[in-house]
Design a protein around this nucleic acid. Sequence first.
RNA 1: GGGCUCAUAGCUCAGUUGGUUAGAGCGCAUCCCUGAUAAGGAUGAGGUCGCUAGUUCGAAUCUAGCUGGGCCCA
Length: 1145
Amino acid sequence: MPKLDSLPAKFDFPAAERDARRFWEESEIFQKSLEQRRSENAEHFVFYEGPPTANGLPHPGHCLTRVMKDLFPRYQTMCGKLVERKAGWDTHGLPVEVEVCKELGIHTKEEIEAYGVERFVKLCIESVFRYTREWEELTNRLGFWVNLDEAYVTFHQSYVESVWWGLKTLYERDLLYQGHKVVWWWAQGGTALSQGEVGEGYRDVDDPSIYVRFPLVDGPDAFEGRTSLLVWTTTPWTLVSNHFAAVHPEIEYALCDEGDDGEERLWVAKDLVEALAKKTKRKLTVVRTCKGADLLGLRYEPPFPGVYYGEMGERTAKLKRVPEEASGLAGGGATELPIGWRVLAADFVTIDAGSGLVHEAPAFGEVDFDLLQQERARFEAFDAIPLLCAVKPDGSFSDDAPPAYRGRWVKEADKDITRELKDRGLLVHHEVYHHPYPFCPRAEDDALIQYARKSWFVRTSAFKDEFLRNNAGIKWLPEHIRDGRFGDFLRNNVDWALSRERFWGTPLPIWRCEATGKMEAAGCYDELLAKPDVAGTEVWDAAKAADPDLPDHLRVHKPYIDAVTYASPFADGARMRRVPEVIDCWWDAGSMPFAQWGFPHVEGSIDTFKWAFPANFISEALDQTRGWFYGLLAISTLLFGETRDDAKLPAPDLPRPETAFPYNACIVLGLLLGEDRLKMSKRTKNYREPTYIFDQLGADAMRWYFFSAQTPWTGVVFQEKAIQEAQREFLVRLQNVWNFYVLNANGDNDQFDPGSHDGARKGTGWRAPGERSELDRWILGELHRTTRDVRAALDRFENFPAAGHLNDFVDALSNWYLRRSRDRFWRSEKDQDKWDAYNTIHEVLVATAKLIAPFTPFFAESVYQNLVRSAGLGNAGAPESVHLCDYPTADESLIDDRLATEMDLVRQVVSAGRAARTGAKLRVRQPLQRCEVILGRKEHAEWLGRHAELIGAELNIREVELTTAGEEYVTYSIKANFKALGPRFGKKVQAVAKAVAALDAAEARRSLGEAGAVEVEVDGAKESLSGDEVEVRLDAKPGWSAAQARGAVVVVSTELTDELRTEGLLNEVVHHVQGMRKDAALDYNARIKLFVETDDELWTVVDGGRAAIEAECQVDAIERAAAPGGEPKSVKIEGHATKLAIAVV
RNA sequence: GGGCUCAUAGCUCAGUUGGUUAGAGCGCAUCCCUGAUAAGGAUGAGGUCGCUAGUUCGAAUCUAGCUGGGCCCA
């Protein structure tokens, strides 16, 4: 009975993966891999799963992320750590609502309310889990080991309550406040969009670009006509709400006569006069110029004076009493100023486009709003200046606007507004402006507008320095993220706009007194229930009674939570009602370090949090920089950072990590591109579905491709072909070695027994590695070197070099060790050398299976099960799975650098020998008499000499001679080694190099050989250079068939004797016959008859070589005759026209 | 418009702290092996390292500018 289970004729990767998956599942290997470390009380290696939003099908990009998240936890587990892996799902947010709206065919907030928030929210829950099965399937098929059964879910009550706890803590520390914010507003949907969402929706569009006259109502320049500011805007609809005009204080402005009729004058930026004259086809004559600062305070009449100006145009307000010199603003001497329609200074004004004067409608622009805030701050009463806004939240003009526009979508009104201005003589120029403008990424026809909303903020900007300190300790891969993209974002931190005016999200846990407006925060549901005179919980109870399937988690969501009120502690008889907002779902995700455990409410969660924070490792794609990576850092820093308030924490002895917080290492993955180098798109289908790849090639192929093909932060083009290639290069090659071993070990002749896994029963003929042949010691050395290097790389989170080491090792194993060892397996004697070979390859393959286990877990399992767990081995005590094994450790004593160098040299020499043959057009089939290997240094000569036979065999050359004296065939040259000489000589290095080059190379070589040094004269001083500081090169002299390797030249003798020629011819015949056997798909052992038609000369050769041909090709008889049936094969053998035919006996 | 990042062979990508002959795989060409066989292997051709200037004894590598792509933000 064979010891090892036999392998299928053709290894089917996808099928083997199915088997492995079933085995893991049935035997609960993942659970055991954790249990094993728990029972050892092992140290934790903390991994955080960034929760994917499961509301779409996973694509290849998700595979990259999940595969990276799998590699390091698997590796650390095998290294003895306990790596708990809790899955998570991000379930809240606008994307979910939009998905549901699409199904319902509705659009706006009003429509959602009409549909019913209760029903709507229920659909949101259902929507979230629609694709979960696909995600779990993907996770399984990829071999991503993560605990899906106990996944955290952001809408679960325990999670929501954790987030509430965090928010309450911040509220009580005065870090959560309400303010205004100009947001990108999706009017049709009635919501603000996050930066990320806005970024997704930019499209190039044509917008109007208009130049409008703002006539001055007073001014220093006496002029009988009309003097106006020429103001530029690309949003005509905002002119209705115009409040100010802005100039840059440092820019030079020019007052120009418009035409010659003396009726109109314009103020524009001086540098733009010429361009504007050309553009507007007007004659502009500069009257005088001045700095923008000199224009400040000028008053004008806005384009729609009937709107606000008519009522408020003359109104003034008291300024704060600021010393004139400190105000820095014109008008500092005044005590009162008009509340609008005058010129302000703004640094953001440029002359890159427009007129150099900008129209300000603070409600519709972030910078404009900031300018308003700055202006407001000058007045005694902050609200002396109102926020003018003639637009309703649904994006239509309000009743403040002129009647012609009321109720119309603002963007749609642009044209009519422009026309009206033209009719009224205010429009100076109108053109089309092509620029990127954001649209709603969920409803692509809806343009977004900037719009001021009330909003809740978290005071993150106060923690900027602490963010930066924590960031400095994080190991970012690639490194530039830390100070580049992420650091940059942190340095420009602004307060986190937390609230969303939506339905499906974590409700903001703030209750407001209806009488006084005073507020307080709730930290959990029970806390709320404990409030005085609680009412409204019956709404939930009724809903639950009506629909018992309703998930209990919904009780902390809208609309049920909104019904909960209690008696106000601030005013007798008043009620506390919740504010309407929900929060940004990024805040949910960023809260996961504690919320995933239900901290601090859930029993045991505080203890869990103590070991599970901070994370040792996280990884997501580049687009998460300002999303999850930031969320984690910000929230953890605010709650648990250096400046935290221990009095507000449930356990004051919580860890307070000094650095690397809240994650030690973060791999930032590049974004995958489709085969056309564009972003992956479902529409254009420019990528292969993950499942297709799994079915065709297997998950390991994809995994290996991601790990080995490039650094993970490279934005890589995802191609099926490349995956196939990666599989062939590594997995198929390794599979071949494995297959070869099993085939031979189980062979009738050998029946090799590899022994038991723990070495208690040794393999057949086992002896210690040190006693084995050089080749065995070499491959074992390579194995241990690889082990050392792979571990070092993985410890640094560098998968790419690690995969590279493994790839090189498998290449060496297959293309040198096995290739050179084949004879040892095939020979009929069962001698020690044979058993050494078997033991070596067995040990190497078992170790390799463990080494690759974190990378390609399925294939590693197949190999391991076969080599260690085959029934015939009686190895019941071995770990059940390769994933329950410890990761191999390197035995430094087995790494022999000298042997590695020498083996490398042999391979080089063989390679050079082949090149020499190719150069002489002498195919390897043609035996040659001799070659000479000329070595640059003699230190390897002796060792290499012992391998002359091997070299001869590889090259089909009978005599191989080694020499260091090859003047006959080579010339020497000597060159400086700059790397060694540079640091020693600095500027003088070029002079030294010149002196070295001038040396007699042969002489210098002799000197180096004898004295170990050579002398040169530089600038009159003698310098002694060692062998490492110069490089002696060998160059083959022309006329010889020679080729160069590093440190050696191989010269082959091209002389052919009759005997050599005859043997070459015989080889040609054998070659053709073997080819025909293969073409005919004959069995290895099939006996044949050979029919040859040829000239006398070649027949003599064939006749004389009968024995060789018959032995090589399983031929029973050779006849000089035409084939009895079928077409013979016509070939030319070294010019001899020949017809060959074979017939099975 | 701003920040970050990238540009190396026909293609996909490596290139460690600057060191003087810039690598791999695929593809291509030529060839080998025919008992790992619907596999395996070898050799070769192919590059002014995006452009320009600078720093340096020495630049694919460092600096600045430019050109072009990507991402993020306006």
